[in-house]
Amino acid sequence: MNPLLTFVVILIGFYGLSTSSNIIKSVFCVTIIESGVILLFLNLGNLDGGVIPIIGDALPVGGIADPLPQALMITTIVIGSTVTALALMLCIKVFHHYGTVEWAEILSRESGK
C-alpha cells in the first residue's frame, strides 16, 4: 500500500518538527511534510489506476488518474515554496539579531535585554 508508506513520511516530518532544535531543521521538516502530503494526495488519486489525465478525442480505456488532486497539488507546491522562502529570509534576520538559530537559545533571550 503506497499511501501508508507516504503517510510514514509525513509522520517522520512531524517527528522531526517535535525534536529538532534548530530553525533551519524545522524548515526542512515542514518541506518534508509538504512533499509527503502532496504525494499522499497523488497516491490516492491513482488508486484506481489509469493513465495520465491528458485525453485525446476519446476517453482512454483504462480511465484516467484523478486530475483534480494534481491541480490542487500544483497550488500546494507553489504555496510551499513561498512559505519556505519567507521562513528562510526570517531565519537570516533571526541569526543576525540573536547570533544563533537554535530555538532554545533564541526563545530564552529575554525581550528587550
Binding site: 512533499s35 502532496i38 504525494l39 497523488l42 497516491n43 488519486g45 491513482n46 489509469g50 493513465v51 495520465i52 489525465p53 484516467i64 488518474a65 488532486p69 494534481q70 491541480a71 497539488m73 500544483i74 507546491i77 507553489v78
Partner: peptide, 11 residues
C-alpha cells in the same frame, strides 16, 4: 509514477 507529470515538472 503516480501519473502526475504536471506536478512533477513543478516539483
Amino acid at each position: 509514477i503516480n501519473k502526475a507529470p504536471d506536478v512533477a515538472i513543478a516539483e
